[in-house]
Design a protein around this nucleic acid. Sequence first.
DNA 1: ATTGAAACCGAGCGTCC
DNA 2: GGACGCTCGGTTTCAAT
Lengths: 151, 151
Amino acid sequence: MAKLDDTDRQLLMLLQEDDRQALAVLSEKIGVAVSTINDRIKRLVRTGMISGFHARIAPEAIGLDLLAFIMVSWSNPKVEAIFLERVKASPDVLECHHITGAWNYLLKVRVGTTRDLERFLTETIKAVDGVERTETLITLSTTKETWSVRV
Amino acid sequence: MAKLDDTDRQLLMLLQEDDRQALAVLSEKIGVAVSTINDRIKRLVRTGMISGFHARIAPEAIGLDLLAFIMVSWSNPKVEAIFLERVKASPDVLECHHITGAWNYLLKVRVGTTRDLERFLTETIKAVDGVERTETLITLSTTKETWSVRV
DNA sequence: ATTGAAACCGAGCGTCC
DNA sequence: GGACGCTCGGTTTCAAT
């Protein structure tokens, strides 16, 4: 974990908001030369601080209207490997976290309709032998969903 | 919700994985002219299918080692407005969803250490008058965390 | 004084329009 | 094809030793 100076921090803030600003614009905003901006971005990528550049798709604009969080648990530890396999392969699953508490895993899932969600639950989750319980929290509305972290 | 043809879909897939590919590369992969790629991207942005281009920061690389999901509830409906205000203003909160089930809201929160989490809970969440219960699920490990949706 | 790292400058070139 | 913006060498500055 290399340390960041103020230029790096400002750059990260600006790029996580919008990575398509011209180097000249970034140079202007931060107050260093264009080539410096270029060097810094390259370094941030090389050192792994920036892990990628991604277009963000508006989910509802393409018909992905249902967001759900699904908590899953089992008692046989052998279940985990198969479960993770399935989950990684499924494009419906955006996130998969091993969590503390009463449940083993928390999934963030985005699909089109409740029918898709039902299909996901039966064909992807409950199809894994040994999965004992699930609880699904449906998102009614989303107030905030940002990819920008404090830097 | 405009309809997408196959070119749009391929383009969205490629750009959400990596938005810095040259138009010529995209043209090659999809098999249409460079100018078409350019037009399509512009249209996808204009129509709101693409809502932005963002550099992704590796959270652990900058010391954000703790990810938590916090469920919150209250009984007085007047609490909601103040709660959302605080949550929107907090850089620790990445997501805030109104959910079904026993809880009112689900938050996704990223901070440095357990101390920061404690401070967040006391100063941001429990400081909201009327918040009655919270439950925090700490993420032990993350198997999958993608921004790419099925298109 | 010497060295190394980082910032700056400008010309060349690739990319976009 | 023309223009813009990025890239990448060389050069300079600055800090630390």
